[in-house]
């Protein structure tokens, strides 16, 4: 074990990453570094490529038809788009929270146990411990401990999103990718999720896509600002928000462009 370094190391890095959907350029030559154990917010107006960038980090971009990816994405220094890479191993490293929670068609318990089971955990007791631990981390345990066998569909949407967080954490990822995770939630559930992300950032690298500037201000340690498929500016949150270098960043923060 290495002692934790005071300065953060780069966890995810893209080099000249371009992504096309059919013939439409969605990401244009993006080179960015995402630091370890901090919250990085990707901000920008709708359609600027925020989600596409996020999808490239765990190769979910593969599941969309007719996409072309150029350049590279390095996770822990490994090029994940290399043909030798086992994509399931890459995805296991990352938990994903989507815009709308998407629980799996099974019980609350099975939802959390799904990932570990796939990766070979069979022991029921181990699974029970793991499920409880992750539901506790996600702040859902007290609400569901008496009804673990009920369907995940019976939960409220805010609870479902926390269930998805627990499910993602159960495969012991190093990175949490969140694609506008609170856009479908009410204010109380939003605060819940934001609070959890804040707690988790000491242990995980968190990348959150958001179009809410206030959310980015509340959460982010680093900010990546994108506009029309291009990376405009990135850096520590305080610097980007208080002293943006680029005119377009300034305009976006002030609300001139959105």
């Amino acid at each position: 074990m290495q002692p934790p370094k005071p300065e953060s190391r780069t966890h995810i890095q893209t080099k000249n990453l371009s992504v096309y959907y059919k013939n439409t350029l969605a990401l244009n030559n993006i080179s960015v570094e995402i630091p370890d154990r901090a919250i990085t917010a990707i901000i920008g107006p709708s359609g600027c490529g925020k989600s596409t960038l996020l999808r490239s980090f765990n190769r979910m971009i593969d599941t969309f038809d007719e996409t072309t990816v150029r350049g590279s994405v390095l996770v822990d220094g490994e090029d994940i788009f290399s043909s030798k890479v086992d994509v399931t191993r890459i995805r296991k490293k990352m938990g994903l929270l989507s815009q709308r929670p998407s629980p799996l068609p099974m019980s609350i318990f099975e939802n959390v146990a799904y990932g570990p089971k796939i990766h070979g955990m069979r022991n029921r007791q181990q699974l029970e411990v793991l499920v409880q631990k992750n539901l506790q981390i996600a702040g859902l345990w007290d609400e569901v401990k008496d009804r673990l066998n009920e369907s995940a569909a019976s939960l409220s949407i805010g609870q479902q999103q926390r269930l998805c967080l627990a499910r993602g954490l159960a495969v012991e990822p190093e990175i949490i990718l969140a694609d506008e995770p609170t856009s479908a939630l009410d204010p109380i559930s939003t605060r819940h999720i934001e609070g959890k992300l804040h707690e988790l950032k000491d242990r995980y690298t968190i990348v959150i896509v958001t179009h809410l500037l206030r959310q980015a201000r509340r959460l982010a340690d680093y900010v990546v600002f994108m506009y029309l498929g291009e990376l405009i500016e990135c850096g520590p949150a305080a610097q980007v928000f208080e002293h943006p270098k680029e005119q377009r960043t300034q305009d976006h923060i002030k609300g001139v462009i959105s």
Binding site: N58, M60, T63, T88, R89, R91, K92, M94, G95, L96, S98, R100, S102, P103, L104, P105, Y114, G115, I118, H119, C164, R167, G168, V171
Partner: peptide, 15 residues
């Protein structure tokens, strides 16, 4: 089956 559900399963490392 919603696409998001399938993606959720993939994102957990399922084949």
């Amino acid at each position: 089956t919603p696409k998001e559900m399938i993606h959720a399963s993939y994102s957990l490392g399922a084949t």
